[in-house]
Design a protein around this nucleic acid. Structure first.
Length: 672
RNA sequence: AGGCGGAUAGCUCAGUUGGCAGAGCACUGCCUUUACACGGCAGAUGUCGCAGGUUCGAUCCCUGUUCCGCCUACCA
């Protein structure tokens, strides 16, 4: 550096640009060392391909960058793999919103054209966040950039699906699943966010069939679903009701009678009236109770969470009410049902009742339990080694407090619903022969939709659970059973998290036994936020151990969430977002990174106020000016004096060399 | 409902084997001293949530309690 005098203040933009270009030109982030001292690998938590860098990314990637640069300086063969996630529902929603502005829907375009449209969008916007990561100074090996829908990664997905299917770890079945009536797709359990709210508990009288003057009172928060009731449950040992078990009640607003059954699992004697209505098609507990008592589910809501005329007819709802309720939303139907019950003097009490409501994590719409055929991963066998790996310390979770969280979830894991009724994603590698499945296609309780929906929107729930799929890595041409050639692929795509569960090894070339895989797998440390511990981390552990026989990473470092100065979650709608890109250009990348790093105490959310960034910007300037001061007073380079002849202050400074520095010790303490 | 975390200066937080309480910001005073006003120097500031207990000694360990936050959960 031979400039005559440094600027008075640090100018981050110029400096960052210069170093960015230098790093790129010299390809400094490729694994360069021999690996004699070991290797160190991090896979990036792939941000959504359509996303833009937010403060959480900034924190996450700053921490990874600190680790990876530290290891690189220590001489390890070091690799940080970058990439992006196709983010099925989220991305599809973005493009659908664009279409809507143009007055179009995805159905208007049709599946093929829609997917092409998403690819176009992906090519336009997909590199945005990558550029922003570079701006943040992330020292990823950019030559190894991956995308979950790359050819290689897609092959990995198919490989896993087929292997799992053959082993019985993937199956198709008709079950009650969480359904978003706006995204029109199934969701997994953890894609539902529960929100506490004040609900109302309605006490409704069901008259005894043999004696219309005697009533059994049930309590429910969802009176509209009573039309789909198939029984009422009481506790087998409840003296109030014991004599009623086995008798029939008339289901209000219908011409049906339903039995009173005894169920000690479903019924809590202490709660409300001690009598529970059972609606197997619209409640998870009731579904299980229904199976215990051999009750056939009666679906009354359609895929848009509207009252389904066909379902209402099957449920023998009163004629006049049926007409009124048809295609009404849940909310509207509830009001109508309540009003009608009141008129008939069957609603005897309303009380406030705290409850939790499930909402779609992508669009906040109220999620409905919905009976439909879906694909599932059988998780129990995968969970066993995933539990063991953490219990025995093959995988360390830091801070340790989250270990129990992980174990608790893993121990009571439920099967993972992996099919999504959307178009953007890895289409399920299963095909159906029309000839062999004549009676199993478009077989649905929702005849209305089956006949009115355009072909392109036929959902997999119209493929009966009895249909025989042909599961194959490559597209089959003929049916292996009958030799027929009229095949079509299952229209569903896989949960986004299915492909990201393979990320630590699919990015290294798996299933090919590549050199990268041999060198860098298992990866070293995974740095991520708590919010995706189950979505992502847990699934990577299950998949990794199952498919590679090894844990996907040794350490999981879970960092805090970034909140605003008041501790509120940052969100665009609240307007409290601190945009890292703006801050970088305002104060410099180092100031932002220093702020995030200094505040990132593990296991605790960070409240970030802009003043902090400003403060560290000042600190950066201070260092800059120290250099300026030295340059002003030093008159050019000199030969280094031997240590013994140096004054005490010099020797002290030299004793504080990097490997003894505070940051080095701090990082060592994590023993990552 | 269960599990976990937090409560320390006005604000945001550190405080890792228990030994007179710390930082940054904010605040006060002085300094227009050529590295830096995105500055320097000096300074004030706390019953360490509350109540017990262990200890020579507790912000730190134990018990109880209150408030806040998060995660998991099928109480209709």
């Amino acid at each position: 550096m031979a400039s005559p005098q440094l600027d008075k203040t640090y100018n981050p933009k110029a400096v960052e640009k210069q170093w960015g270009a230098y790093w790129a030109e010299h390809q400094l982030f490729q694994p360069r060392h021999t690996g004699e001292d070991g290797s160190f690998c991090i896979v990036i938590p792939p941000p959504n391909v359509t996303g833009s860098l937010h403060i959480g990314h900034a924190l996450n990637n700053t921490l990874q960058d600190i680790l990876i640069r530290w290891k690189r300086m220590q001489g390890l063969k070091t690799l940080w793999i970058p990439g992006t996630d196709h983010a099925g529902i989220a991305t599809q929603n973005v493009v659908e919103r664009q279409l809507k502005e143009e007055g179009q829907s995805r159905e208007d375009l049709g599946r093929q054209a829609f997917i092409e449209r998403v690819w176009t969008w992906r090519h336009q916007s997909g590199d945005t966040i990558i550029g922003q990561l570079k701006q943040l100074g992330a020292s990823c090996d950019w030559d190894r950039l991956r995308f979950t829908m790359d050819e290689g990664l897609s092959l990995a997905v198919r490989e896993v699906f087929v292997r799992f299917y053959k082993e019985g770890l993937i199956y198709r079945g008709e079950r009650l699943i969480n359904w978003c009536p706006r995204c029109l797709t199934a969701l997994s359990d953890i894609e539902v966010q529960h929100e506490d709210l004040k609900g109302t508990l309605y006490h409704i009288r069901y008259a005894l069939a043999e004696d219309p003057e005697t009533f059994l009172t049930v309590a429910t928060t969802r009176p509209e679903t009573l039309l789909g009731d198939t029984a009422v449950a009481v506790h087998p040992e409840d003296p109030r009701y014991q004599h009623l078990i086995g008798k029939q009640v008339r289901l209000p607003l219908t011409t049906r009678t339903i039995p009173i059954v005894a169920d000690s699992i479903l019924v809590d004697r202490e709660f409300a009236t001690g009598a529970v209505k059972i609606t197997p098609a619209h409640d998870f507990n009731d579904f299980e109770a229904g199976e215990r008592h051999g009750l056939k589910p009666l679906t009354i809501l359609d895929y848009k969470a509207q009252m389904d005329p066909v379902g209402l007819k099957n449920a023998m709802v009163d004629q006049d009410l049926l007409a009124t309720l048809s295609l009404k939303s849940v909310q509207e139907a509830r009001s109508i049902v309540i009003e009608t019950l009141k008129q008939k003097d069957l609603l005897i009490q309303e009380e406030e009742h705290p409850m939790a409501l499930g909402k779609c994590y992508r669009c906040k719409t109220v999620v409905e339990p919905y009976l439909s055929p879906q694909w599932f991963v059988k998780t129990a066998p995968l969970a066993v080694p995933a539990i063991e790996a953490v219990e025995t310390g093959k995988i360390r979770i830091l801070p340790e407090g989250w270990k129990n969280n992980y174990l608790g979830w893993m121990r009571q894991i439920k099967d993972w619903c992996i099919s999504r009724q959307i178009w953007w994603g890895h289409q399920i590698p299963a095909w159906y022969c029309r000839n062999c499945n004549k009676n199993n296609l478009l077989d649905t309780g929702h005849a209305v939709e089956a006949t009115t929906l355009p072909d392109s929107n036929k959902m997999s729930c119209f493929i009966s659970p009895n249909a025989q799929p042909i599961v194959s890595k490559t597209d089959p041409k003929i049916c292996p059973r009958c030799g027929g050639s009229d095949l079509f692929q299952d229209p569903d795509v896989l949960d986004t998290w299915f492909s990201s569960a393979l990320w630590p090894f699919s990015t290294l070339g798996w299933p090919e036994q590549t050199q990268d895989l041999k060198t860098f797998y298992p990866t070293s440390t995974l740095v991520t936020g708590l919010d995706i511990l189950f979505f992502w981390v847990a699934r990577m552990v299950m998949m990794g151990i199952k498919l590679t026989g090894q844990v996907p990473f040794r350490d999981v470092y879970i960092h805090a969430l970034v909140r605003d100065a008041e501790g509120q979650k940052m969100s665009k709608s609240k307007g409290n977002v601190i945009d890292p890109l703006t801050k970088m250009s305002q104060y410099g990348t180092d100031a932002l990174r220093f702020t995030l790093a200094s505040m990132a105490s593990p296991g605790r959310d960070m409240k970030l106020a802009e003043e902090r960034i400003e403060g560290y910007r000042n600190f950066v300037t201070k260092i800059w000016n120290a250099a300026r001061f030295i340059q002003l007073h030093a008159d050019g380079p000199k030969t280094a004096a031997p240590l013994e002849s140096r004054p005490f202050p010099d020797r002290w400074i030299l004793s504080r060399k990097p490997c003894h520095s505070g940051s080095h010790q701090g990082l060592r303490r994590l023993s990552l």
